[in-house]
Nucleic acid binder design. Structure first.
Length: 564
RNA sequence: UGGGGCGUAGCCAAGUGGUAAGGCAACGGGUUUUGGUCCCGUGAUCCCAGGUUCGAAUCCUGGCGCCCCAGCCA
């Protein structure tokens, strides 16, 4: 388990209480859990709850957590996903060591157990088609009826199942079913299908098999093989538990795992359906699974989210109850900002440059101004930022006719240039089309560093860049992928996609210090937000992603006055 | 009108018969060389109706509402 995550015994929820009781009362000695992803897509923001739960419990109880791929459906699964899932779990901060497993490792054992069930008269080969099986299953309110093939002899079942395995039949021709109860009120118990014929190449077993077990026949048995004590899954499997138990009880498995269910975690402004995410990628609405707008872990990583923010969020949310819930995405963002505020070095960057010339500042002079790297962390020290007569400031920091609540730069007004001087705007230069192209200012030489000897305190402090020293960069601003908190509520997810989820600004400038920043390292652009270099960066062209903006009271005020 | 679950503030969530934690959001105010951070303040009688009890969000009964299950997906 990762060393940087301290065990917090105080953490408690109904599952930890069950585990604690099992240990206390001697039902289990070594706690074993498992995270069982199907490698059919990228891990998304809904997965860490299960990952942190399973790895966390193993860690807290001195047990172990297995990473086991539930790879029983070769039609949907790919090696690319097997790789990305491992990378994402490690990024999140969890480690399974040598305990990497695949359900496909157990195909031979599972096959033997299928034979065992047949010999016990508890499974049979059914010749019904998929459609017929559906008809025979009955409905939610009516019982099903027995398949005409339900009472074949054990010998015939054995023969047929072996021939299924040998590849004598085409896909869909026959299935192996458990013989339980077609009248059960629980549809999962109406002779569930255990094996189907699939002439497909498996990412790991290749063409060795043409029959594959279904989830229900693979999962619990894999748990038993690995000695998993607590098999934690989401609520929708609650009514599979009787089947889970039935199989464990009717097979000569080496251990007795127990299944417990917890609620999934959803978020506002977010869609986690793998099918939909796959379409976003394949239809080009985003550039890939790790497009920073995606809700995948790969995307959050690329966007600069610290995994600790995710973990802290999960700690605060807890396991929750057994109801349906969607956390407001703001809650996650708060935890991410909390981590970044403490950790991210401060830097200067200008997104929409406006030229500012200080008329009374010596023509060729350059001063190295001392800037604090992180006011939240004195040990981060300081750095030098070059200051000169010609500067860039943020266009949004100047208004020719400011409303009363605007207290940044305006004609005749004095503001502070952070860590530099107090400057006063004396003139506004415009081009032929009346666009403001330049500001003329004067500075007060007595205010070096930003403090006035006479105690004058401007209402605003601005960030700036020396035009001679500033480094050009592209900055990509990200916003929510959807325009509403409940995307798709009107029936069309695509209609709710936010057309402004990405804004690319090519003409940005950053302080020289930023040129060598490693990919994925998140810094704060003062007064703007958190940003990190994107992998698209090249030595000659810096590209930054906005991880998250800072809370912005001024923007909120403006929005309020626009729609009162 | 089958089965399995769930209903505590806008959102998440503690609470397990003794008189409703906490966080996010929102709204006020203070500090501030980031309109950031930080600090202070403001909100519920627990889906509804009966009942048991000295006492119920917690127990019982009856309603109402919401979620999941009819893949040879997981």
């Amino acid at each position: 388990m990762s060393a940087d995550i301290p065990a917090t015994p105080e953490r408690s929820d109904f599952i930890r209480e069950i585990v604690a009781a099992d240990v206390r009362e001697g039902r289990v000695s070594d706690v074993v859990t498992r995270f069982p992803p199907e490698p059919n897509g990228y891990l998304h923001i809904g997965h860490p709850k299960s990952i942190a739960l399973n790895f966390g419990i193993a860690q807290e109880f001195g047990g172990r957590c297995h990473l086991r791929f539930d790879d029983t459906n070769p039609i949907k699964e790919e090696q690319e996903y097997i790789d990305s899932i491992q990378e994402d779990i490690r990024w999140l901060g969890f480690e399974w060591g040598e305990h990497l497993y695949f359900a496909s490792d157990y195909f031979h054992q599972l096959y033997d157990w299928a034979l065992y069930l047949i010999k016990a008269g508890k499974a049979y080969v059914d010749d019904l088609s998929a459609d017929e099986i559906r008809e025979y299953r009955g409905t939610l309110t009516e019982p099903g009826k027995n398949s005409p093939w339900r009472d074949r002899s054990i010998e015939e079942n054995l023969d047929l199942f072996e021939r299924m395995r040998a590849g004598e039949f085409p896909d869909g021709a026959r299935v192996l079913r458990a013989k339980i109860d077609m009248a059960s009120p629980n549809i999962n118990m109406r002779d569930p299908v255990l094996y189907r014929i699939l002439h497909a190449t498996h990412p790991r077993t290749g063409d060795e098999w043409c029959i594959y077990p279904l989830y229900d026949f693979a999962h619990g048995q894999s748990d038993a093989i690995e000695g998993v004590t607590h098999s934690l899954c989401t609520l929708e499997f609650e009514d599979h538990r009787p089947l889970y138990d039935w199989l464990i009880e009717n097979l000569p498995v080496p251990s007795r795992p127990r299944q417990y269910e917890f609620s999934r975690l959803n978020f506002t402004y977010t869609v986690l359906s793998k099918r939909f995410l796959r379409r976003l990628v394949s239809e080009g609405h985003v550039r890939g699974w790790d497009d920073p707008r995606m809700p995948t872990l790969a995307a959050l990583r690329r966007r600069g989210f610290p995994p600790e923010g995710l973990r802290n969020f999960l700690d605060i949310v807890g396991l929750g109850g057994k109801g349906t819930s969607a956390a407001e995405i703001e809650m996650l963002e708060h935890e991410v900002r909390d981590v970044l505020n403490r950790r991210a070095p401060r830097r200067f960057a200008v997104l929409r440059p406006l030229k500012l010339v200080i008329d009374n500042y010596p023509e060729a002079q350059v001063e190295e101004m001392e800037a604090v790297n992180n006011p939240e962390d004195p040990s981060a020290g300081t750095r030098k930022v070059p200051f000169a007569r010609e500067l860039w400031i943020e266009r949004d920091d100047f208004m020719e006719n400011p409303p009363s609540k605007f207290f940044r730069l305006a004609p005749g007004r004095e503001v502070r240039l952070r860590y530099a001087y107090l400057v006063t705007c004396t003139d506004v230069v415009k081009d032929a089309s009346d666009e403001i192209v330049e500001l003329r200012c004067t500075y007060d030489p007595e205010t070096h560093g930003g403090d006035a000897p006479d105690g004058r305190r401007p209402k605003a402090t601005l960030h700036w860049l020396s035009s001679e020293h500033a480094v050009p960069a592209e900055v990509r601003l990200y916003d929510r992928l959807f325009t509403r908190p409940d995307p798709g509520a009107d029936g069309d997810l695509f209609a709710d996609l936010n057309p402004d989820s990405e804004t690319v600004r090519e003409e940005c400038l950053v302080e020289p210090e930023l040129a060598g920043l490693p990919i994925g390292e998140t810094v704060q652009f003062e007064r703007l937000g958190y940003f990190c270099p994107d992998p698209d960066s090249t030595p000659g062209r810096l590209v930054f992603n906005r991880t998250l903006g800072l809370r912005d009271t001024w923007a909120r005020l403006q929005a309020q006055s626009r729609r009162p």
